[in-house]
């Protein structure tokens, strides 16, 4: 049996009295994410040619692409951030931002009928560059998730 007077935690405890805390005051002090961290998928509607490769390769089936209707949509709550769509995109329309977007975790239909985490872009064929329409009504009618 070891000597009962040995108290190996004491030096550490004394140092803790004078050292800075190891934690951050989280909501007020946020550590920036590292370069190359995988956060949220970002989409550039102008360069996309609707090849549907990202939709076919997505392991989580989070991406829906419709070539006829010129619609590109992603469910951020289904996306697993594996980076595969970014790797396969030939037109470099997809990028992975290092910041994670705050997502709605409650299943609630918003005032415009949007679904939580659903993001959709629509490109008119006559217009070359349409600004991104975010959180538009879902294709098949808005429904609570």
């Amino acid at each position: 049996m070891a000597n009962p007077l040995r108290l190996p935690m004491v030096p550490r405890a004394l140092r803790n009295l004078v050292s800075k805390p190891a934690t951050r005051r989280y909501p007020y002090e946020i550590r920036p994410r590292f370069e190359g961290a995988r956060g949220t998928i970002e989409f550039d509607v102008d360069t996309c040619n609707y090849c549907m490769l990202c939709m076919r390769r997505c392991p989580a089936a989070a991406i829906t692409v419709s070539r006829e209707d010129r619609i590109w949509a992603i469910e951020h709550l289904t996306c697993i951030g594996c980076n595969v769509c970014v790797e396969v995109c030939a037109k470099k329309s997809l990028t992975m931002s290092k910041e994670s977007k705050p997502v709605h975790t409650h299943a609630e239909v918003g005032p415009h009928g949007e679904r939580p985490g659903h993001e959709e872009w629509h490109k008119e064929e006559t217009q070359a560059a349409e600004p991104a329409v975010q959180a538009a009504p879902a294709v098949g009618g808005a429904s609570p998730v």
Partner: peptide
């Protein structure tokens, strides 16, 4: 892990 793989827990 986050620096080198991009994810803390799921590295992919």
């Amino acid at each position: 892990f986050e620096k080198t793989t991009g994810g803390r827990i799921i590295h992919s």
